[in-house]
Lab assay of single mutants.
Amino acid sequence: WKITIYDQENFQGKRMEFTSSCPNVSERSFDNVRSLKVESGAWIGYEHTSFCGQQFILERGEYPRWDAWSGSNAYHIERLMSFRPICSA
Rank of each mutant, 00 (worst) to 15 (best):
A89L: 07
N10E: 09
M81Y: 04
S70C: 12
S50A: 11
V33E: 01
I44A: 11
R79I: 05
T19R: 07
F51W: 05
S40E: 15
C52D: 10
I86E: 10
K14N: 14
D31E: 10
S20F: 05
A68L: 06
G41A: 02
P64Y: 04
G45T: 03
I5Q: 00
T19G: 05
F18G: 01
N24M: 03
I3N: 04
P85E: 04
H76I: 09
E17D: 11
F51H: 04
S35C: 00
Q54A: 14
V33C: 13
S40V: 08
F18I: 07
Q54D: 11
F11S: 02
S21R: 05
Y46I: 00
N24A: 06
V25S: 04
R28N: 09
E78D: 15
I57P: 13
D67C: 11
W66T: 10
R79H: 15
F51N: 03
F56K: 05
H48A: 09
E59F: 04
G53C: 04
F30W: 01
G41Y: 01
F56W: 13
G53H: 01
Q12G: 09
Q54C: 06
F83E: 01
N24L: 01
V33H: 02
A68E: 07
S50M: 15
C22A: 04
L58E: 03
P23R: 08
I86N: 15
G71T: 13
D67R: 10
I86R: 12
S26D: 11
L58H: 03
N73G: 11
V25M: 04
I86F: 13
Q8N: 06
E47W: 02
D67Q: 14
F18C: 08
W69N: 07
D31P: 08
Y6P: 00
M16G: 08
H48M: 13
E59G: 10
P85D: 00
L80A: 04
S88T: 13
F83Y: 01
Y6H: 04
S70R: 10
V38E: 03
S20D: 15
F51T: 02
E27F: 05
D31N: 12
I77V: 15
I3T: 06
F30M: 09
G13R: 00
S40G: 13
A42R: 15
Y46W: 04
W69V: 12
W43N: 01
Y6W: 09
L36N: 05
T49C: 06
Y6S: 00
A89C: 07
F51I: 02
F18S: 04
I77Y: 15
A89W: 08
H76E: 13
D7G: 05
K37Q: 08
K14M: 08
P64V: 03
G13Q: 02
S88G: 11
V33P: 04
Y63K: 00
S20N: 12
T4S: 06
E47R: 04
P85L: 03
V33A: 09
Q55S: 14
F30N: 01
R15W: 14
R79M: 06
K37I: 15
L80R: 03
S20T: 12
E47V: 04
D7K: 03
S40T: 09
N24S: 09
P23D: 11
H76G: 14
V38C: 01
Q8L: 06
C87N: 15
M81A: 09
G53K: 01
F30I: 14
S72M: 14
C52F: 10
L58N: 04
A74C: 11
Q55I: 03
P23H: 07
R28K: 09
S72N: 15
R84F: 04
S72D: 15
F11Q: 02
R79Y: 13
Y46K: 02
K14F: 08
D31S: 10
R84L: 05
F83C: 02
R34T: 02
E39R: 09
N10G: 08
F11V: 00
S35L: 00
D67K: 08
Y46S: 01
K2N: 07
V25H: 06
R15Y: 14
T19L: 07
P64T: 06
M81W: 04
W1T: 12
G61K: 04
R28I: 12
G53Y: 01
P64G: 06
H76Q: 11
R65I: 05
G61R: 04
H48I: 00
G61E: 03
D7W: 00
S82T: 01
Y75A: 15
I86V: 15
Q8C: 07
Y6A: 01
S40F: 07
C22P: 01
D31H: 13
E9W: 03
S50K: 15
C52A: 14
D7M: 04
S26R: 09
F56N: 05
N10C: 06
G41D: 03
E17F: 07
D7V: 01
S21K: 06
S20Y: 07
S20P: 01
T49H: 10
R79G: 10
S20C: 07
Y63M: 02
G45C: 10
C22R: 01
A68S: 12
I57R: 14
Y63L: 02
V25A: 05
C87S: 15
I57T: 15
E62K: 05
C52P: 02
I5M: 04
I5S: 01
C22H: 03
C22D: 01
Q54Y: 11
S20Q: 12
Q8W: 00
K14D: 07
Y6F: 11
I77P: 12
D67I: 06
N10Y: 14
A74Y: 11
G71C: 10
R79T: 15
T4P: 05
R65D: 10
W43R: 01
W1C: 15
K37R: 12
G71M: 12
S40N: 04
P23K: 10
S40H: 11
P64C: 07
Y75P: 15
Y75C: 13
Y75T: 11
F51K: 00
S26P: 08
V38D: 04
T49M: 08
R28M: 10
E62M: 08
E62D: 11
Q12P: 00
G13V: 01
S29N: 11
I3L: 07
P23L: 07
E47P: 06
C87V: 13
S21V: 05
S72L: 10
H76F: 12
W66Q: 12
E9Y: 05
S50W: 06
D31F: 10
M16I: 10
A42Q: 15
S88L: 07
S82V: 00
R15H: 15
G45K: 03
I57W: 08
